[in-house]
């Protein structure tokens, strides 16, 4: 809480507050005393009444009344005193708050000064933008210097990598499987007979197949 040893001193304000609080304590003690007195007067009045001494009882009650009026007065004084003490203590708290604000503002200002003001930030942002633009330009230029063939090769490699990642076989493996023709469905027929016999034979075959299906 920022309690440096230097704050471990008793200030004049502390002494003033102590004085007020001591005054309050004295009033408290005074009230205690008065309460004792009023209690005693009440019991005296009761005693006198049982003895039949009415005038003495009345006197005791009057005294009690007077003490009670004192009590009410001290109550008011006590309240004033307590309010004053509370105000002083609150003012002290306020002082601390203002001090804290001051410290904070100071630090903030100092940091801003270290940043070099708005112009500096603006300048810095401009410079940063320039630097990034320059970087973009360099990238463009580097890309432009590559030949089309190089680009193709790069693209091919990228595709290959993607293929591997997606689980597709490498293009080399696909090429290795030769595309053979299908096995012929018909018996080989002599080329000379092919002219008419070819059709007859197919029909005969169909006929032979039908009863089997039926």
């Amino acid at each position: 809480m920022g309690n440096t040893p230097s704050t471990h001193k008793i200030s004049a304000q502390d002494r003033a507050i102590l004085d007020m609080k001591n005054q309050r304590d004295k009033l408290h003690q005074y009230q205690k005393r008065i309460t004792v007195i009023t209690d005693r007067e009440t019991s005296i009045a009761r005693e006198c009444l049982t003895r039949g001494d009415k005038s003495k009882a009345l006197l005791a009650l009057r005294r009690k009344k007077f003490q009670e009026s004192l009590l009410a007065k001290t109550d008011a004084q006590l309240q004033t005193l307590e309010e004053l003490t509370a105000s002083v203590e609150f003012a002290q708290v306020q002082k601390d708050v203002v001090f804290g604000l001051q410290q904070g503002t100071g630090v903030l200002k100092q940091i801003h000064a270290e940043m070099g003001g708005i112009e500096n930030v603006e300048k810095l942002m401009g410079e940063s933008e320039d630097a990034r633009a320059y970087q973009r330009e360099v990238s463009e230029m580097l890309r432009g210097e590559m030949s089309n063939q190089d680009e193709d090769e790069v693209e091919d490699e990228l595709k290959k990598m993607l293929g591997v990642i997606n689980g597709v076989k490498e293009p080399d493996a696909v090429e290795a499987t030769v595309d053979y023709p299908n096995v012929p469905q018909q018996e080989p027929v002599y080329a000379g007979k092919l002219k008419q016999g070819g059709e007859q034979n197919t029909r005969a075959r169909q006929r032979a197949a039908e009863p089997m299906l039926a």
Partner: peptide, 11 residues
């Protein structure tokens, strides 16, 4: 906070 002896012991 400033506290009196009285209020600590008898308060």
């Amino acid at each position: 906070v400033v506290l009196t002896f009285y209020e600590l012991v008898n308060g």
